[in-house]
Nucleic acid binder design. Sequence first.
DNA 1: AATTCCAGAGAACAGTTGTTAACTGCATGG
DNA 2: CCATGCAGTTAACAACTGTTCTCTGGAATT
Lengths: 208, 208
Amino acid sequence: MSHTLGVRQAQKQRTRQALLDAALGLLEEQSLSSLGLREVTRTVGVAPTAFYRHFRSTADLGVALVEEALGSLHPTIRTIVATAGDDDERIDRAVELIASHVAAHPAHIRFIARERHGGVQPVREAIRSQLDLFADEVRTELAKDPVSAGWREEDLAMLARLYVDQMLSAASAFLEVLPAPAAERRRTAEQAVRRLRLISIGRRHWQD
Amino acid sequence: MSHTLGVRQAQKQRTRQALLDAALGLLEEQSLSSLGLREVTRTVGVAPTAFYRHFRSTADLGVALVEEALGSLHPTIRTIVATAGDDDERIDRAVELIASHVAAHPAHIRFIARERHGGVQPVREAIRSQLDLFADEVRTELAKDPVSAGWREEDLAMLARLYVDQMLSAASAFLEVLPAPAAERRRTAEQAVRRLRLISIGRRHWQD
DNA sequence: AATTCCAGAGAACAGTTGTTAACTGCATGG
DNA sequence: CCATGCAGTTAACAACTGTTCTCTGGAATT
């Protein structure tokens, strides 16, 4: 199964990754719809035509970036929601985890936030389908919780989406204060915590 | 005071508005950072150089579009929050109002959702400052409500921001289902209502 | 009636873009 | 060891970009 890649294919994947990295870097200061294929190949140091060996278009590259940014995040999300413990404990841990993830992969988060409503349809759809997946996974975890006993199916789905949206919103907020002093970053974290707390309270009293 | 504009300035403003309209149309299928100045003037039917008589750059035009899209919305927002009546009634009315506004000005909403995290800094900042203004106005209205008695200042601010975010989120959701059949549009409205209800429940039990 | 002002036109600039075709060199599989 | 496959190169294309400078016609001011 673990068939070591030949020298040939290994080099190809390396160039492909270089293209993705270069694009992600360039996308910190512009949107995908204005990203030029030549711009990307130039920063990698490769001929413009080489691009076509890996992607049909910049939109295609964008879809690959969505996969890179969100694909490996599913187990993390599950963990956040499924972790046992007090509600407030869980919230604090979730917010910390989001903050550290943003600090570790700022460009990825920026890309997702930017292109979620961006000008390139295939990319919007790719992001949407990933978020739908997240929401469904969160819903599954929430359903296991005794607090969700007696909940209507669509209410559970609503809550799951709300959580996913909040995580992205929090991530985007952290992104904006990344260069700010620690005090302001803490305030952002506290805002996120308060939001999740209010939602969690609403959740506990939903059945009244 | 109501000094009628001279023929001269009137024509200028007409061209300016034509540029804004053309840009807004073009931005339905791309982001501002990829919008070309020539592209805009071409659709209006004026020389590229005429653009500079009205805007320094496309970013500058973008800032003007933010004002056009959000500037006149402040009284509406205040009304939504300040309206008397049962909580659920208020929520229903708010969601209906958002839906009809999106149906009436889809391009404006799309523009705001897209450029809020878009690739053009001055536009992001313009949107942010408008949303901050909204949040502050909502906070002021919320403070008048007896339910908010005894609330900490930052908790009120958090709730206000949460409401503003929800309105934008709902608007963006309506936008996505604008071409969809009425049944799906209703489902979107119900999702928005449920979210606001949960938040409203959390709000009533916040003090426990 | 004469003068100033200025929105918009026109032409030209150096650079950029995506895409095509035909190529080269090297790892791969027979 | 030789033939094939294919990642990446080179060159060229027509079309497009933002910005400059110069000019013009008609409204606004005097």
